[in-house]
Design a protein around this nucleic acid. Structure first.
Lengths: 189, 189
DNA sequence: AGTAAACTTTGATCCGGATCAATAAATCAG
DNA sequence: CTGATTTATTGATCCGGATCAAAGTTTACT
């Protein structure tokens, strides 16, 4: 159950066996079917997810009511709405399973308790923050410098599973273009 | 010389007097005139700046050669190109003083040495990462959800000094629109 | 399996902001 | 202080992608 998570953690921040076991003991399994809403905008941020199989989607909602996809997370990665998780504030983003998914989750308070007490786990959190920052900066840069067509090509090159596994509607939403525009881009030889 | 920095640090993460002094001892003063280039794209990331007076601008360069402003930093704030500072990698962003500025800087290796050894300074770094992440996420959201006009209004509301202190050219560049477009937005009553 | 619902494609039109161009205003160096 | 260079304004035109509309296709449910 926890093998993939163990690998992920030890790959990113070496913990002594005893501390690793302590951390793992806080992760609980959760199996959800497609389209399950795991957390809602307006609720306090409570959990961070690790994905054993499946795919999660984090999205927010514009004032006009439309959804905007922040990111997708596939197997062997973490997903949380970090902006609210950090401060334990009200969620500005929802998280949804877009496939049948097997997850492990840790409670926010447990997570930060471990950061303060388990040697090495603070470094794991630091890695998460650094990684999230770099990724986000990159995504902002892509939006600023690339056209819709270029963003699609880049996604296909760097993250083909997004295009291959998910419906066009979600891919278009992630690229911040309409389904129509994505359809035309794809058919453009 | 270090009063503003002291206040900034203690406001964000309480350090014992002894540890505070240890940290402060690594910051060196630097006075630069307008338009000084403080770090260049392609060099390794070496410094983090604290601004006593003046303004720094961090920008990157698009494949077509045009500059894109990442952010401005005014007095009483830190500025670094965190994406490269984190890993000590080659800078993908340049930093320039856009006003006559009085700075304090800390060497990257000193900074991380302190993170590993000075009790409480790791929490300061954690605060920096969390803050940078939240800010960046917000900026991405603004680009995705707002029009040029709306981004300008928001900037004027939340960060009026950018509009008031800096030339239109830089403001437009920060908003990722042309000078012409900004000029029209401003004249639109 | 069969029908409703969701998703995808294609076409016509529209609009925000870019681009190009020309002038006016401000800033800077000697 | 004055000419030179940079910056700001205003106008005309263009283009990427949105919007609206209507088929066509896939997926999901009982």
């Amino acid at each position: 159950m926890h093998e993939q998570l163990t690998k992920y953690i030890t790959d990113h921040s070496p913990l002594k066996e005893e501390h690793l076991q302590q951390v793992l003991s806080y992760f609980k399994p959760l199996r959800v079917k497609k389209n399950t809403l795991l957390s809602r905008i307006g609720e306090p941020s409570r959990r961070m997810f690790f994905i054993n199989t499946g795919c999660l989607r984090v999205y927010f909602i514009k004032p006009d009511g439309r959804e905007v996809t922040r990111r997708f997370a596939f197997e062997n990665s973490f997903s949380s709405s970090l902006t609210s998780f950090i401060g334990g504030t009200i969620l500005k983003e929802a998280t949804q399973a877009v496939e049948l998914s097997e997850l492990l989750y840790i409670d926010r308070l447990d997570f930060y308790g471990l950061v303060d007490t388990v040697p090495g786990w603070d470094l794991f959190y630091r890695y998460c923050l650094e990684y999230a920052y770099v990724t986000n900066t990159r995504r902002l840069e892509d939006f600023i410098t690339l056209s819709a067509r270029e963003r699609y090509r880049l996604l296909l090159e760097e993250n083909p599973e997004v295009v291959l596994r998910l419906p066009n509607k979600l891919v278009a939403n992630y690229l911040n273009i309409t389904q129509e525009a994505l359809s035309r881009i794809k058919s453009d030889i």
